[in-house]
Every structure is written in C-alpha cells, then in structure tokens.
Amino acid sequence: MQENKQPKVQVRNLTKKFGDLLVLDNISFDVQAGEFLCIVGPTGCGKTTFLNSLTKLYEPTAGEILLDGQPVDLKKQNIAYIFQEYSTMPWLTVEENVGFGLDIKGVEKSKAQALVNEYLDIVGLTKYRKYYPDQLSASMLQRVVIARAFATQPDLLLMDEPYGQLDIQLRYHLEDELISLWQRTGTTVIFITHNIEEAVYLGQRILVLTNKPTSIKQAIDNDLPRPRDIASPDFVKLRNEVTDLIKWW
C-alpha cells in the first residue's frame, strides 16, 4: 500500500494473552480510509478476540490500535459493529431500530429522521418501518442491523461473520447490497469471516491469519473487477491461493 496519507486504522504490535495463553501474537497492519479489508483465518484462530481488542471490549496485553491517529474511544469515535446475532431491540419498530444509534449519539431529531429514511430506503425496508422485529424474517433483521450501522455514518465498520447463519442465496444478495452501500458511502470496512469465497468476493485486500497464536500470515491485494464472478478463472485462482495459505496442516 502507498503510505502517503495517514491510515484510517493503525494496528501496532497487538498482543493479547489470556493468562499464559497467547492468542494474538504481535499483529501489525494498517487500513486505509475507504478500504474494504477482509480478514480470514481458520476457525478458532482468535478472529473474535482480535475484534474485541479493536473495540476495547478486551484490553490488549501489549500494542495499540489507533483510529485516525487516536487511541480508540467508543464514546468519541464512531465505530459500528455488526455481528452474527441480529441484536435488534424487540421493543422498537424497524424505523426506531435503524435510528437507535443516532438516538444514542444524540443526533438532532430531524437530521436523524432524514438519515433513517435514507437508509430504510437503501435497504428496502421503507414499507416495513412500523413493523416489530418479531414480524420480520432473518434477512430483513440483518438489513435492519446494517441500516442501523450505516445510518450512524461510522468512521469504521467492523463486521464479524455477519452472514454466517444465512443460506447461500441470501448471503449473495446481502453481500452485493453491502458492496453497493460501501461504494456509495465510502465507509472503511473490516470484515471478518472464515468463508474464503466470501472474503475473495468482498475484499479489496485480504489478511490471512495463522492458527493460534494468531499472527498475520500474508496480506493479499485483490483487484478483481466488480461485480465479481465467483466462477471466473481469476476468482477461482485467487480463492485457491487463499485456501492454500489457510491450510496450516
């Protein structure tokens, strides 16, 4: 990567131990503003520990994570986090759920409403704005969560296997939706998955992690043209390349 401007995210020598167990071993990398970075690794390789350190849920044992050159502070900086569980508030309508982050951040009502309308429209839920989560399907719930995240216009969007439990067709659909949202908003995205195909389909760059203790095995630039075709020879070649890197056995 060219280093002519300050990276959005700087991870420096990140290390995490639980007691004697070394989980993250001296990880360093940068993410540029507006980049879509995928992180793949074998199951149980500490991806989630990594994310939790990033969001300050865990204090790292050593090293630091800087966002725009500052240590991460969730109250000041705007990081959105999307994970596998839908985590919609069952007592709020779709509309109120999408606006929940804006409400927490104290965004002015009329501005918040405009953003909510905009993102409801983008994810195609305008018709369902008055529904409660109980009345929605899994894909709609995931869209609510995505709209809620994007509506806060985050500096950084973290996604932890958000589509892990969805069926393939739905996953393809939501992945395309995510890409178009990303292209539209220029949000910086870190997307964690164990699904290699998903990583190759989505990522501008792919970080391959090793098994525990986790470190970075290799970073691969992925400039396949979009929309990507999972059956094209270039795609398959890259996918195999990543697969070979992940095989630690």
Partner: peptide, 11 residues
C-alpha cells in the same frame, strides 16, 4: 447482545 450492541454504538 443488546447491551453489547448499545455499548458498541457508544451508549
């Protein structure tokens, strides 16, 4: 999860 989600949003 809901508490976590709210915290992530800066609550």
């Amino acid at each position: 999860e809901l508490i976590g989600a709210a915290r992530m949003l800066g609550a």
